[in-house]
Design a binder for these strands. Structure first.
Length: 262
DNA sequence: ATGTCAACGGCGCGTTGA
């Protein structure tokens, strides 16, 4: 059986309910992982998702900020969630599908503007969050697992529009990239998107502030799909669905897809 | 780099976070 997973930072699930429905209807992923729902779980508009067949949901929410949800048209069970850096914010949830595959959905802190832990608490928070992810997966040794989400880091030179210009910009600094590499190494996570699309610039986020995001194309690859080595060879057909960035009232992120033959 | 969104509190728009 093929299972298609999609991850999308939606930047308010209530405001963007219409384009979530459009994506589900048009692309029909089996599982859709959302970040930045910006709503309490009970305020997520689940009825119309269920009417399209997506009747299963595992979610974590809070008022106004963060929030993660996994929508599915195939049965799944809640696989728990973790708190990071001693905060009660909703940045992780997990679900296990009937085929035994566990999906971790993450929203890593953005980290503010100044890449200095002394001057910027948000940057300190981001690095601590990544350290806790690393330690958890090191101790837990996940199997048959997929990790998706907005990791708020574009690790490779070809994951940003200009490597040199972004070296001191939060999301592409060497210290963040090193922290993310340690998370990846902690369970030998395979970057499925780059396994499938190894060469060339690839982005999943374009700022709202650009005059013409499409023409300027000053993007970054902040959204990721990883898998544990035991299932990495079952993955294929990765893609960034760039069209969705140009839809009516868009998110600043595009959906990222991968399919697993499991 | 540039400079636009969205939620909130509470009903007009400044603040916070991205």
């Amino acid at each position: 059986m093929a299972t298609t997973v999609c991850t999308w930072n939606i930047n308010s699930v209530r405001l963007r309910e219409p384009i979530v429905l459009k994506l589900l209807q048009e692309q029909q992923p089996d599982v859709l992982c959302l970040q930045e729902c910006k709503a309490l779980v009970e305020l997520i508009p689940t009825q119309n998702f269920a009417d399209l067949g997506y009747k299963y949901m595992v979610a974590r929410g809070q008022k106004g900020y963060n929030g993660v949800a996994i929508l599915s048209r195939i049965p799944m069970t809640d696989a728990g969630h973790r708190q990071f850096v001693g905060k009660k914010d909703a940045r992780h949830c997990a679900a296990t599908l009937e085929n035994g595959m566990t999906i971790h959905n993450f929203y890593v802190p953005a980290g503010g503007d100044i890449p200095d832990v002394e001057k910027n608490d948000k940057f300190d928070h981001k690095l601590k969050f990544l350290n806790e992810m690393r330690d958890w997966f090191h101790d837990d040794s996940p199997e048959k697992s997929v990790l998706v989400g907005d990791l708020n880091i574009a690790p490779r030179e070809d994951d940003v529009w200009n490597h040199k210009q972004l070296l001191k910009i939060v999301s592409h600094t060497p210290i963040e990239c090193e922290h993310l590499a340690q998370v990846q190494d902690s369970a030998n996570w395979v970057d499925i998107t780059r396994q499938d699309i190894p060469d060339g610039n690839l982005y999943s986020w374009w700022s709202y502030r650009a005059r013409d995001w499409d023409a300027a194309d000053k993007g970054r690859r902040l959204d990721h799909v990883w898998a544990t080595p035991d299932i990495s060879n079952a993955a294929h057909s990765s893609r960034v669905y760039r069209d969705a960035r140009g839809w009516e009232k868009p998110s600043d992120h595009a959906p990222v897809f991968a399919t697993f033959d499991l």
